[in-house]
Deep mutational scan, measured.
Amino acid sequence: DEFHFHWNGRDIRVRGDSEELRRLIEAIKRGELSEEEIERAIEILER
Rank of each mutant, 00 (worst) to 15 (best):
E39M: 10
E36A: 14
A27G: 08
R10C: 02
G31S: 04
G31W: 09
E35R: 12
E35M: 12
E26K: 13
E43S: 10
L33E: 02
W7T: 00
R40S: 08
R15V: 13
E20G: 09
E39Y: 13
I38F: 05
I28R: 01
E2W: 12
A27W: 15
D11K: 15
E35V: 13
E32I: 12
D1I: 10
E32R: 05
E19K: 11
L21H: 11
S34F: 05
E20P: 13
E36L: 13
F5M: 02
L21D: 10
L45V: 04
L45F: 14
E2S: 07
F3A: 01
H4W: 10
R23E: 06
R10H: 03
I28H: 02
R22W: 15
R23G: 08
R23L: 09
L21A: 13
E26A: 14
L45Y: 07
R23Q: 08
R13N: 14
E35F: 14
L21Q: 10
I12F: 15
F5N: 00
R10I: 03
E37F: 06
I38L: 10
A41N: 05
R30C: 05
I42S: 01
R13D: 06
E35D: 14
N8R: 15
R40F: 08
E26H: 15
A41C: 04
E43N: 10
E35H: 15
R23V: 08
N8F: 03
I25H: 03
E36F: 13
I44R: 10
E35A: 12
E37V: 04
N8D: 02
E20I: 12
R13Q: 09
G9Y: 01
V14S: 02
G9T: 01
E32D: 12
I44Y: 14
S34Y: 04
E46L: 14
E26Q: 15
H4V: 14
E20S: 11
D1Q: 10
G9H: 02
G16Q: 06
R22A: 06
S34A: 09
G31I: 03
H6N: 06
R40N: 09
E32V: 10
G31H: 11
E32A: 12
R15Y: 10
N8K: 15
H4P: 01
G16R: 04
I25C: 04
A41D: 03
E26C: 15
D11Y: 15
N8M: 09
E43I: 09
N8C: 06
N8Y: 02
L24E: 00
I42W: 05
F3E: 03
I25Y: 15
I28S: 02
R13E: 10
E32W: 13
E37I: 04
A41W: 13
H4K: 04
G9K: 02
E2F: 11
F3M: 05
E46K: 06
V14Y: 15
L24W: 09
R40Q: 12
H4R: 06
G31A: 07
R47G: 14
L24V: 05
G9A: 01
R40I: 08
R47C: 06
E32S: 13
R47I: 11
R15G: 08
E46I: 14
D1K: 08
E20F: 15
G9D: 03
I28F: 12
E20K: 09
H4T: 11
L24F: 11
G31Q: 07
R15K: 13
L24Q: 02
N8H: 05
S34T: 13
L45G: 02
S18C: 04
G31T: 03
D1F: 09
D11W: 15
I38R: 02
K29L: 10
F5C: 02
R13W: 15
E32N: 09
E20H: 10
R30E: 08
R13A: 09
E39V: 09
E43G: 07
R22I: 12
W7R: 01
D1H: 11
S34R: 07
L24G: 00
R23I: 12
K29Q: 10
L24T: 04
I25A: 06
A27Q: 14
E35S: 13
A27I: 07
R23D: 07
